[in-house]
């Protein structure tokens, strides 16, 4: 699988789903902050293994999930995590659909999302080649860390 093509598919899937869900047109960006953050991790299985990390600060997550909820506050604050997980699941699902269509096979398959939150979240997966994308909107900034297994040397 060509990594650059795959990363572009995740990029376009994020932009499409955020537009479809909350009519937000995110722009690519290049900065971060140190507020309390939420991270959704989705494992990728299939021919190519890896993981996607969607990350943002809690205020951005709150604004985004309220927009998903047609502008209404969520019934239970804990739902924020589930809404964010669903958002990640949707754009990763769209991306894997594109990947499977592009490579005409079952190249990628998603594992259920895992949710983390806290200050100074640092996640590293040394066995993966990863690339981080940044997207900004007036709602806030999202980062997507896309990592795939390193190619084995022949």
């Amino acid at each position: 699988m060509q990594q650059e093509a795959v990363i572009n598919l995740f990029k376009s899937s994020f932009l499409e789903i955020s537009e479809e869900l909350v009519e937000a047109e995110f722009q690519e960006a290049h900065n971060l902050d140190d507020k309390t953050r939420i991270a959704i991790i989705i494992g990728i299985t299939g021919k190519k293994k890896g993981r996607i990390i969607l990350e943002t600060d809690m205020l951005t997550a709150q604004k985004f999930t309220e927009a998903m909820n047609c502008g209404d506050p969520l019934d239970d604050p804990k739902e924020l995590y589930l809404y964010m997980a669903e958002f990640a699941n949707m754009f990763c699902g769209r991306a894997t659909t594109y990947i499977n269509d592009l490579f005409q096979g079952r190249e990628a398959w998603l594992a259920p999302p895992a949710i983390y939150s806290g200050k100074n979240l640092k996640m590293d997966t040394p066995s993966l080649n990863s690339e981080v994308l940044y997207f900004k909107h007036e709602i806030g900034i999202f980062t997507i860390d896309i990592g795939f297994e390193k190619e084995k040397k022949e």
């Binding site: 699941n89 699902g93 769209r94 894997t96 659909t97 499977n100 079952r106 998603l110």
Partner: peptide, 8 residues
């Protein structure tokens, strides 16, 4: 319902 709409 699925987020993954692949043919398989």
């Amino acid at each position: 319902l699925s987020a993954m709409g692949d043919e398989a």
